[in-house]
Design a protein around this nucleic acid. Structure first.
Lengths: 267, 267
DNA sequence: AGACTAGGTGAATCGAATT
DNA sequence: GAATTCGATTCACCTAGTC
């Protein structure tokens, strides 16, 4: 099968189905998988979830029209089976010990930890992300102001490529200008990509607006991206291209060397 | 069956098994259930989890000797069945709509949301608690610096007794002087008891060192507590007694009236 | 300073089953 | 019976922010 493929700097992006693209990658191609799959959340009842994403995630006030996104209307069991499929496919293309980060909300959190393990990955923890501003308070209840990164690894993780310790909690305000309704802050992803050894390949098979790619490239890592919806694919490619063009590269993180992986390969 | 029973101010404490004490309470006796059950966590492998709590939750350096606590060495399935039992028993003694808060760690979080529902409660969300300082960093990993409050209610929650909106995330440093290895900060519990209408009855059937009771009494609520381990029962009673004695009662929270429940009962 | 952290890794060791 | 393998268990050591 052939997909539209865009190579921009150290980023390779495919417009196609996650599962199908994953099956065409080389084994060991992925040093870290960071994904934000459609949560299939957003309603207590099946009928609520089956709406188009535009109707489901309503924005009050100014109406910003965005294309609907695909894969967000499965019920919870179908969602689980589908995730297990692409997670399993991704595992086969991941370097042994490669880390996996997967966004989810509170409602899908337990399913997510299950399907991560069903897909063959080793579950290692949960990292909350405090969205602060984006809270819808409810009288007499706790606000749901956090989303979650469920993380794990492709089997045992050795510490030999590690360059430091990462926090277990992040606070970043949701960006006001978004091109995708579930778009994550670049700064959040800039922190998360540190789980990938410097110079390694970060993969995201549900790119959306491409924030993971932006963060990977900006931090001197390589990137493989997949997005099925052509309009978001174009948006992602444009954002990655803008990142490649303006080399306001971040300074290497504390103790990070851009060539850790190459050194390991050579030595 | 008879249990040791201590009445201290507005707090009634029982030394005994949670399930057995719950079955002796009157229906509707509980306005809010806030519990910190033994997580049965503490290791990647079954053997690790089966150790005594003293050996499992290691303290480096100076050895502070604390009594082991009971019920922390079930495997995950047994943990689930056991929780479903006492949660179901508690539901029968809870006022309709009463909120439930249940502490857990990342490893037991998915089980906890399952068994909360298995016990008949309605799952409503997850509230992370950032322990900040109490982090054991690990090279190349995300630290696990959060624990979680899984919360829900005894059926539909009406908003008529609600006095305000609660945050969906808390940051409190672990207290340095603890009498129980899993003791929670008083300030955290002072925030959480706000889920209970002012003047209502907060119950905690795994008191440990009694922090929930301290927070309930300090905020002008009533309290029912249960603890199976006599040494922790004594510690809890002493801490509650100290709280009752020094009436440095907190000012009513924003919009809180100390007599909301009484007013409802009278009118 | 030094203790503290609802740990995790990996090497060494022990034990039972198999060759 | 001695050697080997595999699994389970034990133990030293690592991490960094805060008190």
């Amino acid at each position: 099968m052939a997909f539209e493929k865009q190579e921009i700097g150290d980023a390779v992006s495919y417009c196609g189905d996650a599962l199908e693209v994953l099956e065409q990658l080389a084994a060991g191609a992925i040093d870290a998988l960071i994904v934000d799959p459609p949560y299939s959340s957003g309603g207590m009842y099946r009928g609520d979830r089956m709406q188009s994403t535009g109707a489901k995630y309503v924005q009050t006030g100014t109406q910003v029209v965005r294309p609907d996104f695909a894969g967000d209307n499965r019920d919870q069991r179908a969602y689980g089976y589908w995730c297990a499929l692409w997670l399993s496919a991704a595992l086969k293309k991941a370097r042994p010990g490669a880390p996996l980060c997967m966004f989810t909300d509170w409602r899908q959190l337990p399913v997510t930890t299950d399907i991560l393990q069903a897909g063959g990955w080793m579950w290692r923890g949960v990292v909350p992300w405090d969205k602060t501003g984006a809270v819808r308070p409810a009288l007499g209840r706790f606000a749901s102001q956090c989303e979650y990164v469920v993380w794990g690894s492709a089997g045992p993780m050795s510490q030999d490529r590690a360059v430091g310790c990462l926090p277990g909690f992040y606070t970043y305000r949701v960006e006001t200008k978004k091109e995708h309704i579930t778009q994550k802050p670049v700064n959040l992803l800039l922190d998360l990509v540190k789980i990938c050894p410097p110079g390694g390949v970060v993969a995201d098979v549900f790119m959306g607006a491409g924030t993971t790619g932006v963060a990977a490239i900006k931090s001197g890592r390589k990137f493989i991206g997949v997005e099925i919806e052509p309009r978001y694919f174009d948006i992602a490619c444009r954002r990655i291209e803008n990142t490649v063009r303006q080399p306001d590269m971040l300074p290497p993180c504390e103790g990070e060397q851009a060539t850790v992986l190459e050194a390991a390969a050579n030595g």
